[in-house]
Each structure stands twice: as structure tokens, then as C-alpha cells.
Amino acid sequence: MTLETVETGALAAPPIRLAGARIGQVARAGLARYGLLLGFLLLWQLGSTFGWINPTVFPPLDRILVALWNGLASGALIDDIAISLQRSGLAFAAAVGLGIPLGLFMGQIPAMERALDPILQFFRQTSALALYPVFILLLGLGEASKVFVIFWATLFPILLATIGGVKEVDRKLVEMARTYGATRATIFRRVVLPASVPSIFVGLRLSATTALLLLIAAEMIGANRGLGFQVMNAQYNFQIPLMFAAIFLLAGLGLTANAVLVRLQRRLCRWSDAV
């Protein structure tokens, strides 16, 4: 009913006022959401220009943007982005490709889950960064050890979330399917799998965050290319605007990955009110 009155009112109004009202609405919603962030950035810019904060540590945003632009235009940062994406992407894909099927399988077979859980917990509690030297010894200082350490850390969130999702499937729904004569395979495809999707997504988002975290750490320790390396390198060379440019790029990468996953989740989990 409210919807109707709003709509007829809008139709009656002249188009210009309508557009104005709509822009106003969008602006207000945007301000409510991003106002604080904008204020923060503004404070940074002003504070740095007027010397309220140390401009050598926090250069004004325009200088950071210039450094970012130069880096992108010269292709240097593009190169770093590409190699970082490749490392984290490869590791993430491998972790997801192994973690989801393994988790689906393990979650269904309690005996196997019980047997593997202690060792999984042990591995999970052993920080991947602590194991990085081991991986370097095994795989050398090249790409393989970097991708592997990211993969290692990324595997556990998705694997454990998938196992949890499968284990928490409502037994009553499974029984319902059984009374209609559903086979194990049908129950898996039509009940267990869809019911696990929300927790699989929780795992995917955790894994994506972990992948970026480990990427930066791995690139800071033993790399000569990549965004994580660039952050350290720029700092050594006192190119502070470039350092911040790389940091912003990393933040952007994380935000993008999360946004993609959230959209995918909305798409696949429209039925659940959790999203």
C-alpha cells in the first residue's frame, strides 16, 4: 500500500523534481555509508598539508595518488599487481579446489572426520608463517614456496568451514528425503550440498582474507616483485607515497575479492535470510 502511494505520487511529480529527489536520496544513503571514510580521508589530506601530522610519514593524498598513477602508467606497479594476483590466485584456487571437495567428503564420513580432526587442528594451530622457512628449505626461495605457504594457510578456513557445513546439515531434512526414497547420491546433491553453501561461503571469505594476508607476508620476506615487496622496498628507499600506493592497492584487492564473494553469495543464497 505504501509502495503504491509513493509510486503514484512520484508519477504525478514533474520529472526534474523526481530526478532531484532520487539523487538526493542516493546522496544521503551514500553519505550515511561512506561519510566517515570520506571524513577520514579529508582529515588526512588537510592534516598532512597543514602539518598537523608528519607529512614525511603520512604524505598528502594527492602525492600518493600521483605516485600511484606514475607507478601504474610506467607499468611497474601493474607488474607487481600481476605477480601478486598470480601468487594469491593460484594458492586460493588450489586451496578451494582441494578444500571444498575434501571437506564435503570428510563431513559425510564421521569416522574419517574423527580420525583426521586432531591432525587438522594441529596443522591449523601451527602458524603458516612459522612453517615458511621449512617450505623454503623444501621448495627453494622461488615461486613454489610462496604459493605453497599461501595455499597452506588458505586451505584450513575453507576446509574446516566446509566440514562444519556438511556436519550441521539438518538430519531431519536428510530423513525427509530418505522417506521419498532418495539415494545417497541424490541426498548429497539435493540436500547436503545446498545446505552447506552458506558455510562454504563463510569459509571462502575467510580464505580470501587469509590468502592476501599471507601474500603480503611472503612477499615481504623473500621476494623482489609483488605488492608486498613494493611496500617494504618503497619504505627502504624512502618513497613513502609509493609505499602508500602499494598499501592502497592491497586494500583494494581485498575489498574487491570480498565484494565478488558477497555478490556470488547473495546470488546463490537468496533463500537464506542470513545474507
Partner: peptide
């Protein structure tokens, strides 16, 4: 059953 046992994604 006592509960409807519907599949929430359908």
C-alpha cells in the same frame, strides 16, 4: 512429520 521439514532453498 510434526515439523514441515521443507528445504529452505526451494
Amino acid at each position: 512429520f510434526q515439523e514441515p521439514r521443507l528445504l529452505p532453498w526451494l
